[in-house]
Computed example of a mutant assay.
Amino acid sequence: MELATQRVNYRLFEKADFDLFYAVFSDKEIMRYAWIDEILSREKMLAFFEDFLSVGHMPNKNNSYAFAAFSRGNGRFAGFADIQLHSHNENGGCGEIGYFLMQEFWGKGYATEFAGAMTDFGFESLKLHKVCARCNANNLKSENIMKKLGMTKEGELRKVRYKGGSWDDEKYYGILREEWLARRQQATL
């Protein structure tokens, strides 16, 4: 399964992509605001990685679609983007997007492009009725991405993420299918 946006090509992670996956999840700065700390053991990383591999066009063991993202300009690996299905049936469902960029792509709008691609995939291909995202309350850049996508802040969980020796709050955002459709329609006017 492949997707494309203006500057990025996406494809599901494959077994041969272990080193790319490792480059993301072993980088302390990339993982700064993530739920988990960086994983430095290649052995531990392999077990983690295998859970993100899909079989055909089906979701992986985490019930998500995890994409390796590559710059269309130079073909370089740009990062990780996924959507995890929390619920899914013939009437829709809810999916949560996530994204991690290699540092060379920071500050250039790629995270917004990744998040937009996963949101569009959730509504267009998976026919979800809601897409959501969460971030560490200290990660203002990620929160701004959610706002740019038209997501509404739905809540803040107090002291649920343990990072750097302290507990951090988490912000939760979401967008409904009808809101997403209205934004798309407005963009074409």
Rank of each mutant, 00 (worst) to 15 (best):
L3D: 05
A4W: 01
T5D: 08
Q6Y: 03
R7C: 02
R7W: 04
D17P: 11
D19F: 12
Y22D: 08
Y22S: 08
A23W: 13
V24D: 10
F25H: 14
S26D: 09
S26L: 13
D27T: 10
D27C: 12
K28W: 12
M31W: 08
M31N: 14
W35I: 09
W35F: 11
D37A: 05
D37W: 02
E38W: 01
L40E: 12
S41Q: 02
S41W: 06
F49L: 07
F49V: 02
E50R: 12
D51M: 10
F52M: 12
V55R: 13
V55F: 09
V55Q: 12
P59C: 08
N62T: 09
S64C: 14
A68V: 03
A68D: 00
A68Q: 04
F70G: 03
S71T: 09
S71M: 10
S71L: 04
R72E: 14
R72C: 13
G73L: 15
N74C: 14
F77D: 09
Q84I: 13
L85P: 12
H88A: 08
N89H: 05
N89E: 03
N91W: 07
G92K: 00
G95M: 03
E96T: 13
L101Q: 10
K108D: 08
K108H: 14
G109C: 01
Y110R: 10
T112A: 14
E113Q: 12
G116V: 05
A117P: 04
T119M: 12
D120V: 03
F121H: 00
F121L: 05
F121R: 03
E124S: 11
S125F: 09
K130P: 02
V131H: 03
V131T: 02
C132F: 09
C135P: 02
C135V: 06
S142F: 02
E143N: 05
E143S: 15
E143A: 15
E143T: 01
M146Y: 04
K148C: 04
L149I: 01
M151A: 06
M151S: 02
T152K: 11
E154Y: 09
E156M: 15
L157G: 03
V160L: 01
R161C: 11
Y162F: 15
G164W: 15
G165D: 06
S166F: 11
S166P: 04
S166Y: 03
W167L: 08
D168Y: 14
D169K: 10
D169E: 06
E170Q: 15
E170T: 10
K171W: 03
Y172E: 07
Y172I: 13
Y173C: 02
G174K: 01
L176A: 01
W180M: 05
W180F: 02
L181P: 00
L181V: 13
L181T: 09
L181W: 06
R183Y: 02
Q186F: 05
Q186M: 10
T188P: 01
